[in-house]
């Protein structure tokens, strides 16, 4: 019982902390960058879809780590399932 309360308080504190970070440091709208992307993505990347241009060229790191998240979650899932897992 105390363990549940402790975990709940911890999660709520973490939630408040993340909310505080978000409100204390709002991400500014970088109009220069977005204007550059909108006006130059066809010449820069050859894509006609600006989203594809951004996630496969300008912000490639984002895509790499997004793919890594899926891989890591599947490794964890295979590891923690007792029946039929890896270990």
């Amino acid at each position: 019982m105390t363990r549940t309360v402790l975990v709940t308080v911890l999660v709520l504190l973490l939630f408040g902390f993340v909310l505080f970070i978000y409100t204390a440091h709002p991400e500014g709208h970088e109009s220069d960058v977005s204007a550059y992307y909108i006006h130059n993505f066809i010449e820069d990347t050859g894509a006609r879809n600006a989203v594809a241009a951004i996630y496969l060229n300008y912000r490639m790191y984002d895509t790499v780590f997004e793919a890594l998240i899926l891989l890591v979650s599947i490794i964890a899932m295979l590891h923690f399932f007792k029946v039929g897992g890896h270990g």
Binding site: G46, A47, L56, N57, T63, A67, L71
Partner: peptide, 17 residues
């Protein structure tokens, strides 16, 4: 090679997902 690169990456990511 920019456009073939985009197509290739989309295929690889699609298969992986």
């Amino acid at each position: 090679l920019r456009e073939p690169y985009l197509i290739f990456m989309n295929i690889v990511i699609g298969l992986k997902v």
